[in-house]
Design a protein around this nucleic acid. Structure first.
Lengths: 144, 144
DNA sequence: TCTTGCGTTAAAGTGCACTTTAAGGTTTAT
DNA sequence: ATAAACCTTAAAGTGCACTTTAACGCAAGA
């Protein structure tokens, strides 16, 4: 299939599929006699994998290392490949924790916005805008 | 307190605290007669808030809008401010979902790496490196 | 007094991950 | 046969969020 089809199947723009291949985020795609890429289902799988990982915030470097090791097609680096994935998994867990923490904080803040702000409207109208900041401190950061 | 102390308390480098103030990620900090910033606990709170949100991937634009509305110190925009936070909360939820999905996929892949790779070592050693890719397809993407 | 260590600014530089541009080649439909 | 609609590349441009640089000011200690 051509790059347009591959793009439709994966949600990655043709320009970015070429970019992915160029930098090594996917293995090289087989070309026809005119140098036109002919994507296989396996290529589509690789594009989906890289897009999925990128969407989740996994950096290109780790992904490129992984694809690169993979392409050596050598059983001796299975452990290295697994370690790369494990490392990214650990980083992902950490980022998720940070985000969940921020989410909980924002949630608490939004849910209590009216309760805190409405009683303060009068004071704010007097130009005393520091009051909220003092009040805000009552909204403690969610504990670990 | 001076910027160094503020930096120590918040984990944000002095350069970045200045940057935060410059772009509006925190409200302006009161200066002394020489133009030197004197950080209050409230300023520290704002830095922590912005850092926390930035760490969680909240974009600067939304944050700047929020701080900007906040500084108007006007009760009429409480709703707008709440809406900004709600919008960021929604985006955060979505990003968390994407990441949790990727995390689950990676976890499954890492956990099954040996099971899949070890039986394939022989074939891989024969240079048949496409086998894994076929095999890989068995590792389905976790469903929503 | 003068060096050390803190502060300040505007402006330029960096790194990442695309994204666009320019200049072509080929294949398909009218 | 010629225009539209694909494909290709290398290289330059973009946007975000810092990060560094250069040049300066103030204030306390040897």
């Amino acid at each position: 299939m051509n790059i347009k089809k591959a793009s439709e199947l994966t949600g990655v723009k043709p320009e970015n599929i070429r970019y992915y291949e160029r930098v090594g985020l996917i293995p090289p795609v087989i070309r026809n006699e005119n140098g036109v890429r002919n994507f296989s289902d396996i290529d589509i799988g690789w594009i989906k994998f890289s897009k999925h990982m990128r969407d989740a915030g996994v950096g290109t470097e780790a992904l490129i290392d992984y694809i690169s090791l993979f392409q050596k097609g050598d059983a001796s680096n299975i452990q290295s490949r697994k370690e790369i994935l494990q490392g990214q998994l650990d980083e992902l867990e950490e980022r998720i924790e940070t985000m969940v923490h921020a989410r909980d904080y924002l949630k608490l803040k939004v849910e209590n916005y009216e309760d805190i702000m409405v009683p303060l409207e009068k004071k704010l109208q007097d130009g005393n805008c520091t009051v909220f900041e003092e009040k805000k401190e009552e909204l403690e950061w969610p504990k670990r």
